[in-house]
Amino acid sequence: MAVNTPAIETYLVNTPVREKPFPFAKLALITVAMLFMALFLLLPLIVVFSEALSAGLGEYLSALADPGVLSAIWMTVAIAAVAVPANVLFGIIASWCIARFKFTGREFLITLIDLPFSISPVVAGLLQVLLFGTTGLFGPWLSDHNIQIIFALPGMILATTFVTFPFVARELIPLAQEQGNDEEEAAVTLGASGLQIFWRVSLPKLRWGLLYGVLLCNARAMGEFGAVSVVSGKVFGYTDTLSLAVESLYDSYEIQAAFATASLLAMLALVTLVLKAALEWAHRDELHALKRKKAAT
């Protein structure tokens, strides 16, 4: 099909839109858009590092070496270390069932999985309090058995898992749907078992999407504030995560230390963005190849 396309049409279709009829308008639009982004996105990022380093590098490093901050780093990593793998496992299983099979109620399941996205993080925390708090559903039983969930690590993990629940699943489901089942079905006819199909056919196909989901899920899990704020005891150096430590320090007017702690989270965000852009770049080639393959057949 593409072979017969006249040269001029190919030129028109393939030439990116660069030359606009109104060069002045173009310049003005670019300027306004970039000024807006500089003011609203770049400046907040710059102010974090500028405030963090306002008292010099020595002060910056000593703020980070504070035992309270070190404990917050540990709490943050501990929460993400449980919440992210849990959501990865769920995302893989849910995408297998929702993307590989066609059944009634599929769309509704996707809506339910997406639900935590549209619920306020504070409500997510409130849910844990209603379940496990002293006056909550399981409160009396938990206090009889001396188990503490609220104002402790388990509650913070549960709240974070709720908030980050859709992240991996919603990347994997559309990708798996897009890729289709042909390879998996071929593997079945060749006698592969379910696990063999998953490890050797599906997982390699979904690898980019999975990495992408893990990246975003981890960024949110490590940075979550509202939900853990409700269920944390908020004791600096004990149940504070990095986000909560930022608040504790800021509220006690240790501004430079608060920004030093915040700079760690900002660096995490920057690393996430760079990796995300890199993945999108790699993924884009793959998508292009897929599209071309489709067009050729």
Binding site: R18, P44, G223, A262
Partner: peptide, 28 residues
Amino acid sequence: RYEFPGRRFADALVDLPFALPTAVAGIA
């Protein structure tokens, strides 16, 4: 629609609010 220096950087920067923890955005 437009090609200009820094476009790729600006495009990546759009996602900053997704990646930056809200407490950091708040104090900044």
